[in-house]
Each structure stands twice: as structure tokens, then as C-alpha cells.
Design a binder for these strands. Structure first.
Length: 601
DNA sequence: GCCGTCACG
DNA sequence: ACGTACGTGACGGCA
């Protein structure tokens, strides 16, 4: 593959600074990512003075930047002094790959990036959200056939990037920016052609700033309480371990599904159920079934629950508390999910336990700063409301317009009883059915979820669709669209290609069909909350309010709110979330507050 | 590095 | 006859 020289077309040489000072005295070129790497790994900024080679195009109102290091000298302007006004100029657009990252690093250096952002990582994501790899290296290779020089290659045997001679470091540093610059031209044309430009500029681009703020804000945790919980769990686990060894008649590694399988199915001769690729399954469904015939499985389940809580949450969270802020700063990834949702990592703040006694205990450790409260606002039944809007089913729409409990109503339809006579068991079944609809349920899937024969599940599904022709028709037309176009779309035109929709393999094809059904619903809900986040963020920016947005959990937003702002903020949040989109059904948001996340919920 | 498991929406 | 709910991330075990 012919390597294209980016540097033929793109001026990456340090250009004159806005003040007209020549920047050609820069030494020890150094890209921002390696700078950031040093800051992260050593915990301190190893660079006292940084010059920036920057090439920008006034006609296009765009800037492409390459921060580089220089050795401080009397006649060399401080690099940040040079670049700061450019990066902070809202009239100059910024081009880069994963700009949220750069924005956050620059903020640590006191530079507050403003203006329009051309993020080529986000462009790549919108063009194909099924892609798992959106690194600059991968995207550059895909679209420009340009093989980026590997960092390790440049580094060689040297310790840090600062040790790399300037002659080698400069082109490497420039390559990052040059590549993003070139990609921008191609990818943003493609966004236009694909009808994704508005989604980018109205949603994903402004969201970069919102997410940067959320990450920077972080959330406060009660570390003392976490230590207490850890000890409590330690005791529980010790007791359970002894009990398990005694029930098993020998010691073994409880955390090993393989060893557990030997105990359950060979030693105790219990009846195996489902199989996995590697052996018999020991998952919760299997163990619950086995619990009917032996005491051990239930204790294994208890052990697993506590072990999970301890290792994944109670013991892991304190390690991720930032020393400077004393808070946990998660990462919100904007380019991971195939549907348009965000994801959260390091730590994942979107899967913090909520159910049961221990869910409460763990959520109680997420607290508000003194004088503040946490405010939680979550969309009620958002995916079903979106489904109602997308499919136009009259019954579903009427239910939401009349503020009727949707699961009770579905139960009434399925079981043919008046709404007033629906019992809790029927409502539970209906709730599962409603979830099933969104997931593209099969009779088998529903029967597994409900623990009923497939025949009964099949009858329930038939009943449901007989009463919800709008839903049924929508499902069929969605599949037809997927087959014809090769992709499905959300309310805002976000696309997800479904290439397997034509697979000759039944299982693969049916899985693709479920994706096609679910993605517009899940993805539209993601579109909606992103709009709400941007609206709320703007309202906060335009005010003198001190409220901070701190988390998004798919259908919920969490805020840290000064007590004095509680009433006005609660009202504002509801207004912006409920009004984010106007659908054929009303949107309902539940707002709560408290000293901790559990109380707020 | 993959697998099974399980936490969340 | 086969294998099935949609979307994630983190953990420990094991090769």
C-alpha cells in the first residue's frame, strides 16, 4: 500500500504566533498525547514551558494544532501564551481526534478550548458505530491508507518522549495533527453525504463540552463508609466460604466455574443444565434451579453476590479517587456503543448496584459536597414511550396520554381482564413482555425469562400483537427497511448498519433482526437524553448557578446542587428533559434529591 | 487474551 | 435441529 505523504499538502511547520513572533526556535517537539501520558503516569507535569506549532486557516476558520515542547529561553515565548488565545477563540474551529481528551488536558494547563470542534473520532463513529476501533491509527489507515508511525518505534529504547531528539520528534508530533486535518476533509464530507452532519453538529459536537465538564466535575465518595462496607463484606464472605466448603465436603476455588462445576456435577451429582463453550453453566439461572435439590447452590449465589460487590465496587472504587480532587472522575465514552448510547469506564459509573439492601448501601457512599444535595432526574418508561411514538400504535399512545400504568394496561390486554382486576403477578408478566417487545422477543426468550413453557409464551406474544397492530406493523416495516437499506435509523437520523440482516445463517440473521428492532428504540432514547444534557448544560452556563452535572446513566441524570438552588434546578431540569423532544406521547421525568445517590433516587 | 459471570439501563 | 431476548464494563480463572 502506497504511503501518502501528508506533509506535502499540509503545512505542519511551526507558523508565526498570533503575536507575530517566530516560532521556529522551538526545540524538542512533543505532541500533546505524550505530554498527557507523562502527566498521567508520573502524576506531575514534566514540562514547564511548552511551545505550540500551530497551523491554522483563517479562511476556513479552523485550527489544527500540534503542541510541542521547547527548552525555555529568554527569547522564546512561553508556548501556552502563544497558543492560548487561538484555542480559546470561539471563532476558530478546532480539528482533532478525540478532542474531549485534548480539551481536558489543556484545561489542566489553564487553557479553556472554545468554539466549533471537528472531531474525526466522532465522525468515524457516526459513519459506522459498529466499528470497535476508532483510534487515529486505525481511522487513518482505513480512510487515507496512511500508516501512522508507531509511538514505540519513535521512542525506541528511550525512557520518555522527551528523550527523543527533536529531529525525530517533530515529524511524529506533526503527524497526529496532519492526519486529523486530512481526515476532517474526507469524513465531514461523508457525514454530509450520509445525512449525519446535523446529528454531529447539533448533538455529538456540543456534547463533547458537556462530557468534558461532567468528567472534570467527578463525584464525591464517602471513603470511610466504603472501608466499613469492605470489612462487613469480608466477614460475610469468610462465613460463606466455610459453609460452602462444608456443604461441598472439600475445599476448592469458589470463583472458578470449572472447579465449581466439578463439585456440583461430579461430586454432588447434581443435574447439569445449560452448556457453555467450555463446560456446564453455573450461572444464576442454573444455580437457582439446582437450589431446589441441594443447599450448596444458594450459598454459592450468596457468595458470588458479595464477592462481586466487594471486588468490583467496594474495594475498587477507592483506588480510583483522584488525589487532587478527592472525587471519582469516570470516563464517558462517546464512540463505543452500536446504538448511540454513551458508555462509562474507569470506573463504570453506569452499573453501580441499585437493587436490594446492598444496592442501597453502596449508593449511599456517593454523596454531595457540604451545603449541596444530589438531584436525580430520570425518564419514566422512556423506551416504551419512544416505541409508542415510533410505531404510532393507538392503544400505546392513548395509555401514555392518559397517564395509565403501562404494565398494568399491557396485562389487561394480554389476559383480557379489566385494568382494575390485574394482579401483581399478571403485571410482572406484562412488564417482562413489554421489555421483550423492545428487545425483539422470541417465544423462547420470553419463556426463559418468565420460566413458563414456550407454548404459553407464544400465546402471550400472539395476544400482545393482536392488540397492538401498530407495534407489529412497525416491527415488520423496520425489518423491511433494514433489509432494503442495510441499516436502521433513530429519531435523529443516527444510523446503525445491520449487515447480518441478509445472513443465510438463521441464528445470525435472527440476531440481526433483533438488533434492527431494538436499535431505533434504544438509540432514540440516547438521542433524547443527549439533547436534554446539552440544553441543561447551556442553561447552567448561561446562569450564575453553581449546580454541576455529574453523571448520565442512560435514562437518568445526576446533579450536585447547592441547597439554595434546589427548587429552581429541579424545575429547570424537568422542563428541559421533558421538553427535549416533542413526541406523540408526553415525556415524564421523576426528580428526587437527597444527601446521597440512594436518597436522591 | 478469552471466557464465564454478573452489575446496570 | 439449532440457539435466542437489547446495550454495556469489570472481575477472576485459566490457557
Amino acid at each position: 500500500m502506497k504511503q501518502r505523504s501528508l506533509f506535502d499538502e499540509v503545512d505542519t511547520a511551526p507558523s508565526p504566533s498570533p503575536e507575530g513572533r517566530p516560532a521556529d526556535k522551538i526545540e524538542n517537539a512533543r505532541p500533546i498525547r505524550e505530554l498527557a501520558y507523562d502527566i498521567e503516569s508520573t502524576g506531575k507535569n514534566p514540562v514547564s514551558n511548552i511551545a505550540v506549532g500551530i497551523s491554522f486557516c483563517k479562511e476556513k476558520g479552523a485550527a489544527c494544532y500540534v503542541p510541542v515542547r521547547h527548552t525555555a529561553g529568554p527569547n522564546i515565548p512561553d508556548a501556552f501564551t502563544v497558543v492560548k488565545p487561538v484555542l480559546e477563540d470561539g471563532g476558530i474551529a478546532k480539528i482533532g481526534h478525540n478532542l474531549k481528551y485534548d480539551i481536558l488536558i489543556l484545561r489542566k494547563e489553564g487553557i479553556h478550548v472554545a468554539g466549533k470542534l471537528y472531531d474525526t473520532m466522532l465522525a468515524s463513529y457516526l459513519l459506522n458505530p459498529n466499528r470497535t476501533e476508532h483510534s487515529l491509527e486505525s481511522v487513518g489507515l482505513e480512510y487515507l491508507h496512511h500508516k501512522k508511525r508507531a509511538f514505540t518505534e519513535v521512542l525506541g529504547k528511550r525512557e520518555t518522549f522527551a528523550d527523543v531528539p527533536v529531529d525525530e520528534a517533530t515529524p511524529y508530533a506533526a503527524e497526529d495533527a496532519a492526519l486529523a486535518w486530512e481526515l476532517r476533509g474526507m469524513l465531514f464530507d461523508m457525514l454530509e453525504a450520509e445525512g449525519l452532519a446535523t446529528l454531529y453538529s447539533d448533538i455529538e459536537m456540543p456534547l463533547i463540552y458537556v462530557l468534558a465538564d461532567i468528567e472534570q466535575n467527578g463525584i464525591k465518595v464517602d471513603t470511610k463508609r466504603l472501608e466499613e462496607l469492605s470489612k462487613e463484606l469480608e466477614l460475610e464472605l469468610d462465613a460463606l466460604q466455610s459453609k460452602i466448603y462444608s456443604l461441598a465436603g472439600e475445599e476448592f476455588n469458589i470463583n472458578s466455574p470449572k472447579q465449581l462445576g466439578r463439585i456440583l456435577f461430579d461430586v454432588l451429582k447434581l443435574k447439569p443444565g445449560k452448556k457453555t463453550k467450555t463446560g456446564f453453566s453455573t450461572n444464576v439461572d442454573v444455580l437457582e434451579e439446582l437450589a431446589k435439590s441441594h443447599d450448596l447452590p444458594a450459598e454459592i449465589l450468596n457468595y458470588r453476590t458479595y464477592y462481586k460487590l466487594k471486588t468490583t465496587y467496594v474495594d475498587a472504587l477507592p483506588k480510583l479517587i483522584n488525589e487532587q480532587t478527592g472525587r471519582i472522575h469516570t470516563s464517558f465514552n462517546q464512540t463505543v456503543t452500536a446504538t448511540g448510547r454513551l458508555s462509562s469506564s474507569d470506573p463504570n459509573m453506569q452499573n453501580i448496584p441499585v437493587r436490594g439492601e446492598w444496592g442501597t448501601k453502596i449508593r449511599e457512599v456517593f454523596i454531595a459536597e457540604k451545603g449541596n444535595v444530589l438531584v436525580s432526574a430520570d425518564y419514566s418508561q422512556i423506551e416504551l414511550r419512544i416505541l409508542a411514538h415510533l410505531c404510532g400504535d393507538e392503544g400505546l399512545i392513548a395509555a401514555f396520554r392518559n397517564n395509565i400504568d403501562i404494565h398494568t394496561r399491557t396485562a389487561s390486554e394480554i389476559f383480557g381482564v379489566p385494568v382494575e382486576e390485574v394482579d401483581i403477578e399478571q403485571r410482572r408478566v406484562a412488564k417482562t413482555v413489554n421489555f421483550g417487545v423492545i428487545y425483539g422477543m422470541s417465544a423462547f426468550g420470553l419463556s426463559e425469562a418468565l420460566g413458563i413453557p414456550a407454548k404459553e409464551a407464544s400465546a402471550i406474544i400472539d395476544h400482545y400483537f393482536a392488540r397492538h397492530r401498530g407495534v407489529q406493523d412497525y416491527m415488520e416495516s423496520t425489518l423491511e427497511t433494514a433489509r432494503a437499506d442495510g441499516y436502521v435509523k433513530t429519531l435523529l437520523g443516527r444510523k446503525r448498519p445491520i449487515p447480518e440482516i441478509h445472513s443465510p445463517n438463521n441464528n445470525i440473521r435472527m440476531q440481526a433482526e433483533r438488533m434492527a428492532i431494538n436499535s431505533p428504540v434504544q438509540g432514540s432514547a440516547a438521542d433524547l437524553i443527549k439533547i436534554a444534557m446539552i440544553r441543561i448544560w447551556k442553561r447552567l452556563k448561561d446562569s450564575t448557578l453553581k449546580t454541576r452535572m455529574i453523571l448520565q446513566i442512560h435514562d437518568e441524570l445526576l446533579f450536585e446542587v447547592p441547597e439554595a438552588e434546589l427548587d429552581i434546578i429541579s424545575k429547570m431540569i424537568r422542563e428541559e428533559m421533558e421538553g427535549a423532544l416533542t413526541l406523540s406521547v408526553p415525556l415524564h421525568v421523576e426528580v428526587g434529591h437527597g444527601r446521597n445517590w440512594s436518597e436522591a433516587h
